[in-house]
Write a protein that binds this DNA or RNA. Structure first.
Length: 425
DNA sequence: TCATGTATTACTATGGTCGC
DNA sequence: GCGACCATAGTAATACATGA
């Protein structure tokens, strides 16, 4: 294996060679490789960015002056912009929408050195992934991709994240089980599904992960949450779709790092025709009110900065027991104009209040009077970061996770791994 | 401690809708 | 018509709360 990759390191890479010619000479080329990705691959932007980096590393080993052209199939703008931000531009690179058929030299992140090649010496690359080759259909592959990220999951969770109905997912899971790609496994109290290594291999292949490359730490959910917490987060997409009939979710992921912070779940799509993000935090209410306040003022500010940076509205939802959600009523959110805050009881699946930018809304059953924070302030998105609402930090929860923390450059808020498991199973 | 009811969860069957 | 997909009702298993 190693020998092969040494003799031809390119043969493991599922890329297209798309050489550019700057002169009339055929033996001098811009050594450009093209990589295709789609928002429907089941991977969030940061994981796609890591794959791109892996390709760059492999190309550096294999070629003197390689360049990478990444074609991204995606609606909207956010997915594309996030990838661009997260990629380390180790070689000349350009990230473009997939519909662009050609690329110009000046669009690359840095100049491309020409490469001399022998006439007819084309690089030999791995073929692009074709599901038929593995006897798997698109919907089944999608389920498998979702499960690859989750490792183990219940059917409704898989259905939610895949965007399919439960009965459809049931059939697909049965098929996958017959083929030995997944298996039943006890998760906590109930039986769910787990992906097997055979299934994982196909998924890795579908993501064009080069063989022998370590991708595990980027593949999965970024951190491990308690069972109840995890379940609520994984149901986020289905929850939104039930609550808002005119919503269209393009993709949803759980425990996913974005520009700043790691939402418990993040859904991305349109509501009433407008592209936006739906950020979910689930809180079982184990920390004190003050700790909660400190944590959330940080998170909300992070969401806000993200919204401003990408010019994209964010709906920030806090779910938990009623008393936890009620806690958030007392603050003034009017400074956070590009985001809307909503709260909801985590037991009531499929319900959510209507949101209003810069305000808090919840629809808790007791205390029926719908609370609306009524403070009109000038819209000025440039005032961030906001001042902490009250500086009274008692003890900081210490991180105790052993999970890898590959930094995205931020390290302020999301260090409280220790509190994440509910311990209620 | 034990019995009971309720809530939550997974699983199954069946019939319907939609597009080709 | 047919396949792909969805909605819904109903069953069974389990945990938890309650009260004797």
């Amino acid at each position: 294996m190693k020998r092969i990759s040494l003799s031809n390191p390119l043969s493991n890479l599922a890329l297209e060679w798309a050489p550019g010619y700057t002169t009339n000479r055929q033996d001098v080329v811009l050594d450009i490789f093209r990589h295709h990705i789609s928002y429907k691959d089941g991977l969030p932007p940061y994981a796609q960015a890591r794959i791109i980096d892996l390709f760059a590393n492999q190309l550096i080993k294999a070629r003197p002056h390689p360049a990478l052209w990444v074609s991204v199939d995606t609606p909207g703008n956010w997915f594309y912009a996030e990838i661009k931000r997260l990629v380390k531009f180790k070689i000349p690179m350009t990230i473009q929408p997939s519909w662009k058929p050609i690329i110009w030299e000046w669009q690359f992140s840095s100049p491309i050195q020409p490469t001399h090649i022998q006439a007819g010496d084309f690089p030999i690359l791995a073929p692009l992934f074709d599901p038929k080759e593995y006897g798997i259909k698109e919907p089944a592959l999608r389920v498998l991709q979702v499960l690859a990220r989750l490792k183990t999951a219940y059917r409704p969770e898989i259905a939610s994240l895949a965007g399919f109905s439960e009965s459809h997912v049931r059939n697909l899971l049965k098929q996958l089980q017959v083929e030995g790609l997944i298996e039943r496994r006890q998760i906590g109290k109930y039986e769910g599904y787990a992906i097997r290594s055979k299934g994982l291999r196909i998924v890795h292949r579908s993501w064009n992960i080069p063989k022998g490359v370590h991708f595990t730490k980027y593949r999965g959910e970024f951190r491990y949450a308690g069972e109840r917490h995890r379940r609520k987060a994984r149901m986020w997409r289905a929850w939104l779709e039930k609550a808002y009939p005119d919503i269209e979710i393009w993709e949803s992921w759980t425990e996913v790092p974005i520009q700043r912070g790691i939402p418990d779940a993040l859904a991305w799509g349109t509501h009433q025709g407008k592209e936006m993000l739906f950020w979910l935090e689930v809180d079982s209410g184990k920390s004190s009110g003050q700790t909660m306040q400190r944590i959330y003022s940080g998170r909300i500010a992070q969401a806000c900065r993200h919204a401003v940076a990408w010019n994209l509205p964010i709906i920030f939802c806090i779910m938990g027991p009623g008393w936890v959600v009620r806690h958030f009523r007392k603050y003034d959110y009017s400074k956070f104009t590009p985001i809307a805050l909503i709260g909801h009881d985590w037991r009531d699946f499929g319900g959510l209040p209507q949101y209003v930018m810069g305000e808090w809304r919840d629809d808790l059953l007791q205390n029926r009077a719908l609370h609306i924070s009524k403070t009109k302030l000038p819209f000025d998105p440039n005032q961030y970061p906001p001042k902490p609402k009250k500086k009274k930090i008692n003890k900081t929860p210490k991180p105790k996770s052993s999970k890898p923390r590959f930094s995205i450059g931020e390290n302020d808020d999301d260090t409280w791994y220790g509190d994440r498991s509910e311990g209620e199973e």
